[in-house]
Amino acid sequence: MDPVRFVNPSGNAAPGGHYSHATVANGFVFVSGQLPITASGKRLVDASFAEQARQVLANVAAILQACGSGVDRLVQVRVYVDTLEHWPEFDAIYAQWAGASRPSRAVVPTGALHHGLKVEVEAVALAAG
């Protein structure tokens, strides 16, 4: 059995708590919930929803790449938005980002998110084959 590997790419801000950005185990990559935070650690609290969504998805893609995976290997994506009104805009941005990949997905309206941000995304993908 392969060992569990914890991944914190240098191109992403350091985790804000006792966790890793991703865990690679049993042929899967488990990406922790990503918020719209830049590599330098700036929280995009005052940014538009679209800018926040693009940053979150860029964070997820960078983490997947650091794990030897990619957007095309996603199997499950969970999206948390502060209000369901943001769902259509997120879906359009997500479709551009994901391209032909259509993993299982849930979009959950949650109310206020951590730090006053508007979107969080977590994911599961296949690790490198």
Results as ranks from 00 to 15, higher is better:
residue 13 A to W: 07
residue 13 A to F: 08
residue 15 P to C: 14
residue 16 G to I: 10
residue 16 G to A: 14
residue 18 H to L: 08
residue 19 Y to C: 11
residue 19 Y to D: 09
residue 21 H to K: 06
residue 22 A to F: 03
residue 23 T to S: 11
residue 25 A to L: 05
residue 25 A to M: 04
residue 28 F to W: 04
residue 28 F to Y: 06
residue 29 V to M: 02
residue 29 V to W: 09
residue 30 F to L: 13
residue 31 V to K: 00
residue 32 S to L: 07
residue 32 S to H: 11
residue 34 Q to G: 01
residue 36 P to N: 03
residue 39 A to F: 02
residue 43 R to V: 06
residue 46 D to E: 07
residue 46 D to W: 05
residue 47 A to F: 07
residue 48 S to W: 05
residue 49 F to I: 04
residue 51 E to C: 07
residue 55 Q to I: 04
residue 56 V to M: 01
residue 56 V to S: 03
residue 58 A to M: 09
residue 59 N to F: 01
residue 60 V to A: 08
residue 60 V to Q: 06
residue 61 A to Q: 14
residue 61 A to H: 10
residue 61 A to Y: 08
residue 62 A to E: 08
residue 62 A to L: 06
residue 62 A to V: 05
residue 63 I to K: 00
residue 64 L to T: 09
residue 64 L to F: 12
residue 66 A to H: 09
residue 67 C to A: 14
residue 67 C to Q: 13
residue 67 C to P: 14
residue 68 G to Y: 15
residue 68 G to I: 15
residue 69 S to V: 13
residue 71 V to T: 15
residue 72 D to F: 11
residue 74 L to W: 12
residue 75 V to Q: 12
residue 76 Q to N: 02
residue 76 Q to W: 13
residue 78 R to C: 08
residue 79 V to L: 03
residue 80 Y to I: 00
residue 81 V to M: 07
residue 81 V to Y: 01
residue 83 T to K: 14
residue 84 L to D: 15
residue 84 L to A: 15
residue 85 E to R: 15
residue 88 P to R: 14
residue 89 E to H: 00
residue 89 E to C: 02
residue 92 A to H: 10
residue 93 I to G: 14
residue 93 I to Y: 04
residue 94 Y to V: 00
residue 94 Y to E: 02
residue 95 A to G: 13
residue 96 Q to R: 15
residue 96 Q to F: 02
residue 96 Q to E: 15
residue 97 W to F: 15
residue 99 G to R: 13
residue 101 S to D: 04
residue 102 R to A: 03
residue 104 S to F: 08
residue 105 R to Q: 09
residue 105 R to D: 01
residue 106 A to Q: 14
